[in-house]
Simulated scan of single mutants.
Amino acid sequence: MSRRLKLAVQIATDATGIPGKAQLKTWMEAALRPGVKNAEITVRVVDSDEGQQLNRDYRGKDYATNVLTFTFDDDMPAIEGLPLLGDLVLCAPVVAREAQEQNKTLAAHYCHLIVHGTLHLQGYDHIDDAEADEMEALETQIVTALGYDDPYRTDTE
């Protein structure tokens, strides 16, 4: 099946180790579900200040988080033929800190968060346990198919 992903990447941080556009696109395409024929997504990688401001302004939480997902229009039903539209914002210092804390490579953690955010753009969520289980299983399937370890496996398992 031929898919078309139009990807814009904005780097608004001096952080290092940020994956390139081609890598981001590979991960996002792997996370697009079969019903998505076209997508237009922007990925913005930010510093802690911007990450905190966005999380505070849009989620009411006054701290920088790893990834924020902004769908074009939550109230608009998916319409056949229209592209999936949205933005992902990743906070580079948070991603780097979490990767270190979780003993993951930076690339593996970025991959997981890109897959996670791309699934959110498609309506997946983890508000209740059943949704969380479904989303985590899908994330694990996609991330491991991309050659990384299970993102939910801990070193104690």
Results as ranks from 00 to 15, higher is better:
2 S>D: 12
2 S>I: 14
4 R>K: 02
8 A>D: 11
10 Q>W: 05
10 Q>N: 05
12 A>C: 06
13 T>E: 01
14 D>V: 15
15 A>G: 01
16 T>D: 14
22 A>T: 15
23 Q>I: 15
23 Q>F: 12
24 L>Y: 05
25 K>F: 09
25 K>Y: 06
26 T>M: 07
26 T>G: 03
29 E>T: 03
30 A>E: 11
32 L>T: 00
37 K>G: 01
44 R>S: 05
48 S>P: 12
50 E>N: 04
50 E>C: 13
52 Q>R: 11
52 Q>C: 08
54 L>W: 10
54 L>T: 13
55 N>Y: 06
56 R>Q: 03
57 D>H: 13
58 Y>G: 06
58 Y>P: 14
61 K>F: 12
62 D>I: 09
65 T>F: 07
65 T>H: 04
66 N>V: 06
66 N>K: 12
68 L>Q: 09
72 F>D: 11
72 F>H: 12
74 D>M: 10
75 D>V: 06
75 D>S: 10
76 M>K: 15
77 P>Y: 02
78 A>K: 11
78 A>F: 12
80 E>G: 15
82 L>W: 03
82 L>S: 07
83 P>E: 04
84 L>F: 00
87 D>F: 03
88 L>S: 00
89 V>Q: 10
90 L>H: 03
92 A>R: 06
100 Q>C: 11
101 E>A: 07
102 Q>S: 10
104 K>W: 06
104 K>F: 13
105 T>C: 05
108 A>M: 05
109 H>D: 04
109 H>P: 07
110 Y>H: 04
110 Y>Q: 06
114 I>S: 03
116 H>K: 10
117 G>M: 00
117 G>W: 00
118 T>E: 00
118 T>V: 02
118 T>W: 00
119 L>R: 07
123 G>S: 06
125 D>M: 08
126 H>N: 07
128 D>N: 15
129 D>Q: 12
129 D>H: 12
135 M>D: 13
136 E>A: 09
138 L>D: 05
139 E>S: 11
140 T>P: 03
141 Q>R: 14
146 L>V: 13
146 L>E: 04
151 P>E: 08
152 Y>I: 12
152 Y>L: 13
153 R>C: 10
154 T>N: 07
154 T>W: 13
155 D>Y: 08
156 T>L: 14
156 T>I: 15
